[in-house]
Computed example of a mutant assay.
Amino acid sequence: MKKLLLPLGIAALMMSSCGSKPASELTLSGLNPKDFQTEVNTQPVSLYTLKNKAGMEVCITNFGARIVSIMTPDKDGAMKDVVLGFDNIKDYINVPSDFGAAIGRYANRIKDGKFELDGEIIQLPQNNFGHSLHGGPEGWQYQVFKAKPINETTIQMTRFSPDGDANYPGNVTAVVTYTLTEDNAIDIKYEATTDKKTIINMTNHSYFNLSGDASTPITDDILYINADNFTPVDSTFMTTGEILPVADTPMNFMTPKAVGAEINNYDYEQLKNGNGYDHNWVLNTNGDITKLATKVTSKVSGISVEVYTNEPGIQVYTGNFLDGTVKGKKGIVYNMRSGICLEVQHYPDSPNKADWPSVVLEPGQTYNSRCIYKFTVEK
């Protein structure tokens, strides 16, 4: 008989009421589930934990369907938390951040917050250099999802977004399913349906620090991106509409190299425009989820994360705007480049680029996107 996965605080209370003595109410990553129990807009928020037989642990809150912690073994077998985040729900609510979130309706930027759909110009909230970023200032990262635990390794998060939400058309129901596999991968599946023609582009916005020490930058990590081309941006981080080759530029990660090897080369316009790496790469994988899209490895811990996806692109962001003003888990200050984001996606501003892969979702269709973060160790 499969055990139902309960919010950890409830599970602990049940164990106490039955006379059992839990080893600890804290998660393996040191989180206290009680610090995540609250209500937002009358909707309950909790912390949920996935565990596999190998001992890996992933903690998720239904506020923004966010990954809060990922505990995975390093080269010495010690468990390390490899993502940035907060250790309480108050900070997630009060400190603007995308840490670990399921982004929607539209991940990344839409130029001037405008797009045309069947002849109608739709104006979205503008929150980033005049553009609409990650669904606007009240995007799904700040909304409560309905959590449905499936078993010890799988949980579904559902968000109903009404017609006109942030001025997006259509009543949209989106489901994010997180599965922790037995081979230490987080398999994320996104599905969405609509009753009116709309656009959608979801992703996960975890900041990875594979050393397990978020006080150290990720610039020495080794990065591989399976992409011969990328989409350049202007000084407002907006895609220009071009697709350019990475060959003979600092954007070339076809041969793995340190993230920081050329990151401060601001003589190269794209690094100046992005304040480092904050770009979309056009993947060579052609939607084949069995092909490796991206890989990052910490030389300190030996931990690697491999990324597989059916999406055409990946936004690699190197935490350029973390500035030391935010304290995360364990009171660690998050300084510039203390995390790297690996956001699989359709290309930024696709609604305004007719020749790029479409992000339009019609009634009767189901949006399907998938991202696998697989954790391995190199000794």
Rank of each mutant, 00 (worst) to 15 (best):
L4D: 14
L4M: 15
L5A: 14
G9C: 14
I10F: 10
L28P: 06
G30Q: 00
N32Y: 03
N32I: 09
P33Q: 03
E39D: 12
V40L: 08
T42A: 15
P44D: 12
K51T: 15
G55W: 02
G55M: 01
R66H: 08
V68A: 02
I70Y: 01
T72Y: 00
K75C: 11
G77P: 04
M79V: 04
D81L: 01
L84Y: 00
F86P: 00
F86C: 01
N88K: 06
Y92H: 06
I93R: 04
N94A: 13
I103N: 03
N108V: 10
R109G: 15
G113D: 05
F115H: 05
L117C: 09
D118I: 04
E120K: 11
I121H: 05
L124I: 11
H131K: 06
H131F: 07
S132N: 15
H134Y: 07
Q143G: 12
F145D: 12
A147W: 02
A147V: 11
K148D: 14
P149A: 12
T154P: 06
R159C: 15
S161V: 08
P162E: 09
P162I: 09
D163I: 10
D163C: 09
G164M: 03
A166V: 12
A174L: 10
A174V: 08
V175P: 06
T177Q: 03
Y178W: 05
T181N: 10
N201V: 11
M202V: 13
S211Q: 02
S215L: 02
T216Y: 02
P217D: 10
I222R: 06
A227W: 00
N229G: 06
T231M: 12
T231I: 12
V233R: 01
S235A: 14
S235P: 09
T239I: 13
T240A: 10
E242V: 04
I243R: 05
L244H: 09
A247F: 10
P250Q: 04
M254K: 12
T255G: 15
A258Y: 05
V259S: 08
N265C: 08
Y268E: 09
N273K: 03
N275W: 04
N275T: 15
Y277T: 13
W281E: 10
L283D: 07
L283W: 03
N284M: 06
N284S: 12
N286S: 14
I289H: 06
K291G: 14
L292D: 10
A293F: 00
T294E: 07
V296P: 07
V296S: 09
T297D: 05
K299Q: 13
S301A: 05
G302V: 08
V305W: 00
T309H: 04
G313D: 07
I314V: 13
I314H: 02
Q315R: 03
Q315P: 08
D323S: 11
D323P: 08
G324W: 01
K327R: 12
K329M: 01
G331H: 01
V333C: 02
N335F: 02
M336S: 11
I340E: 01
V344A: 15
Q345R: 06
Y347S: 11
D349N: 15
N352Q: 12
V359E: 07
L361G: 11
P363K: 02
Q365Y: 04
T366W: 03
Y367M: 11
S369W: 01
R370Q: 15
R370L: 11
K374R: 13
V377R: 01
E378S: 13
